[in-house]
């Protein structure tokens, strides 16, 4: 298989300058094939959202320093600017935001917001663009889509707003959809509907999806592949099945253990002790070592090696390296 990957991160580093420097992403290597759905998992501050924003070049240019390369469909997106960047955004890659209530313009109707995107990318007239908007709203199965066209965001429920947001993001048939915790702001019952809808539309449109979440249950539900981030780097990646059945990194194991199944009332939950590191310095050793029950001296002195376990399953931990070499 020598197909061009849809997305390819190569040693991506992102630093934010300011009163203090933050090393948000530290040498990320990740690739995604067309039509794959990747769940990007990690706790707050692990660099999930920064990764997505890098993909859309949405990071504030003055305050952020980027290194490494990001290729989408073989194009180095770091070199895009002006009109090429504008047609890349929303045309090739689009994004569903965490809070549809905030990500939609409050004083424009849903129809107008979808139509203006379509007009911009497809160069068609308002009437035709409105037809596309109506078609998209129907596809995301919003009740009475004709009426929704003329609705303002505040007139819709949270679930409907997120459906409208998805319709907007998919209106130009992107090859890659980025979903930044798209269900976090929604009720539990609505969450699962939106997840299933995304999964269905992904199959229907054959697009790649990067789905950011901190909920491992959600990631397992929808993704083909899972990538787990910690302190601005990947700790483990592989097919959902491999990662869940055979987690190698202590952090992944900790995340899997930290759920509510089989918990006895009154007992303490299995949480990972400690908190994520401050990212003021670039890591010179394993970032997880201070919280890791299995940490050894070499974990605190060197960066962990990346071990390929086969089948796309790789892990960045000395423990995995020693079991495979031994």
């Amino acid at each position: 298989m020598t197909q061009t990957p849809l997305v390819e991160f190569e040693n991506l580093k992102v630093r934010f300058k300011g009163e203090r420097t933050v090393h948000a992403i530290n040498g990320l290597n990740l690739s995604l094939q067309p039509g794959e759905m990747l769940g990007l998992l990690g706790e707050s501050g692990s660099g999930k959202s920064v990764t997505l924003k890098t993909l859309l070049r949405l990071l504030p240019p003055k305050r952020s320093e980027l290194e490494g390369s990001v290729r989408v469909n073989g194009t180095d997106i770091m070199t895009l600017s002006g009109n090429a960047l504008a047609s890349y955004r929303g045309g090739d890659v689009s994004m569903v935001f965490q809070e549809p209530a905030l990500a939609l313009d409050p004083v424009y109707t849903i129809g107008d917001q979808i139509a203006e995107t379509v007009m911009r990318h497809k160069g068609i007239g308002k009437t035709a663009a409105m037809d596309v908007a109506l078609d998209m709203l129907t596809r995301v199965r919003i009740p009475s889509p004709e009426r929704r066209l003329k609705n303002y965001p505040h007139e819709l429920s949270g679930g409907m707003r997120q459906r409208a947001m998805i319709a907007l993001a998919l209106s130009c048939r992107p090859k890659l959809l980025l979903a930044d915790e798209p269900t976090t702001a929604l009720d539990a019952t609505v969450q699962i509907q939106i997840l299933l809808l995304l999964r269905e539309l992904q199959k229907e449109f054959g697009m790649g999806v990067i789905f950011v979440t901190h909920d491992i249950g959600v990631a397992v539900e929808v993704s083909d592949k899972i990538a787990i981030m910690y302190a601005g780097n990947l700790v483990e990646t592989g097919t959902t099945r491999d990662v869940i059945r055979n987690p190698q990194h202590p952090y992944t194991k900790g995340l899997l253990a930290a759920n509510l199944h089989g918990v006895v009332k009154g007992e303490r939950l299995d949480a990972i002790p400690g908190s994520p590191p401050a990212l003021e310095e670039p890591p010179h050793c394993c970032s997880f070592a201070p919280r890791c029950a299995f940490a050894e001296d070499r974990c605190r002195s060197d960066l962990p090696p990346v071990t390929d376990l086969g089948g796309g399953h790789s892990v960045s931990c000395v423990l995995a390296a020693s079991t495979t070499t031994a």
Binding site: R89, S94, M95, F97, D105
Partner: peptide
């Protein structure tokens, strides 16, 4: 947030200004 979302869907700077003014 919606300003960033406008850029994310490929709106030009002038389109974004129109939204802000409105």
């Amino acid at each position: 947030d919606f300003v960033q979302a406008l850029y994310a869907k490929g709106m030009r700077h002038s389109d974004v200004l129109k939204h802000v003014i409105r």
